[in-house]
Design a protein around this nucleic acid. Structure first.
Lengths: 217, 217
DNA sequence: ACAAAAGTGTTCGACTTACACCCATGG
DNA sequence: CCATGGGTGTAAGTCGAACACTTTTGT
């Protein structure tokens, strides 16, 4: 693949991760080291190369800006406001991505809860705001997305926390349980997991290991 | 606005129209007059200019290729397969558009039912195939889309035909009636309209004249 | 009268929401 | 024993699909 940058298309990734400590779904942002908006936080984004696929560009963005690999990704929308980028780069394809767990985050990388992201460069805050409902829509429905976010197994507490974090309101535990039970490919492991205080919860596990590829483009 | 083409992004429009004669939702295609794929049919598409908005580009595509204005349009998806264009233009933003009624179509323009489109240039058939479910999803839900397609008033027969044409199967008249009744901004005009044979049908009319702008980008 | 087109009514199952109540564990 | 987290049950409301049946027109 040749490395000629196409001049006017950028690919920005909303890189997500479930933080088991804080119990939040977090968005990865990094401090920009080049102009414009140098030293400000921004979503990982790259300029699309000629012949490069969107998925590859998004992965490259997460790898170069957050120093992480991605488990899954997909297309969200296109932002086309003029003047969104002082360089004249008018088009940005926004992708979601679920990042690998970071062992140790570089100092220029930060993770913030989706519902509490600090001011970012460009129109990146608007991107997150606009795309959050789209992400909510994918939760427990788009299995590739959900599975990547939860990991291969997860306790009920994580399901509650992820749902609360994305939707903004705490889900009804009973209803969430029934919802999980109806998700294809998701089953109850007969291990129980203790979270400290309270009754031990079910551990859910994804069964079919093959990830369904997202149809499209 | 300057007219420098950006090298690698095209905007293709799935231009729709409800044909009251044939009772089909039709897609507008035009014979290409330049290479590549000269003389073959294709969706109206243009190369995005620098600083140009997607909506403007889509409108320009419909205007220049089909010689028509558009009533409404919106974003569908992005196609990014490499080699989809021999010129190396890898990215295409696919938009839907509802075109004005043609008084007389130029000879290079054809309209075909969505479920029976002839072979087109590039990957345009795949685009239509992939986007059709997205269009079905908008019908009777996205009011901008639906209103543009039906026009300000429409008989039941049109509602049935549009639904059948997009979904591929004939809707249940009773259910469709109730559905229409539940659409905000849509009401029953107390005129009845005679379609030739059969019982005269209700004429539906859109009330609030202000179009809700599509949120996004 | 009959076919074509339109309209009403009713049922069923799936899903969502809300809420009440029971269970198991740590301190 | 009680706060905390987890789980079951149930009922109301909404929605879509399916189907039976009636009404109004042209031929």
């Amino acid at each position: 693949m040749d490395r000629q940058p196409t001049s006017n298309v950028s690919v920005d990734a909303i890189a997500l991760r479930y933080n088991n400590e804080t119990r939040h779904v977090e968005v990865g942002v990094s401090k920009r080291i080049i102009e414009p908006y140098i030293d400000q936080l921004a979503l990982p984004g790259v300029t699309l190369w000629e012949g490069e696929r969107l998925a590859d560009a998004a992965e490259r963005a997460v790898r170069t800006k957050l120093d992480l690999g991605v488990r899954a990704l997909g297309q969200l929308t296109v932002f086309d406001e003029p003047h969104r980028d002082p360089r004249g780069q008018t088009l940005s394809v926004v992708m979601w991505a679920v990042a690998d767990d970071p062992d140790e985050a570089p100092d220029y990388v930060q993770w913030h809860p989706v519902d509490d992201v600090p001011p970012l460069a460009f129109d990146h805050n608007q991107m997150i705001e606009f795309c959050r409902p789209l992400l909510v829509d994918r939760l427990w429905r788009d299995l590739t997305f959900t599975r990547a976010l939860t990991g291969p197994t997860f306790p009920v507490s994580a399901a509650v926390a992820i749902t609360r974090s994305l939707t903004g309101t705490a889900p009804d535990r009973g209803n969430l349980n029934r919802r999980l039970a109806s998700v294809r490919g998701l089953g109850i492991s007969h291990q129980r997991i203790v979270m400290g205080r309270g009754r031990p919860g079910t551990l859910w596990e994804w069964q079919s290991t093959h990830m369904e590829p997202e149809s499209g483009e």
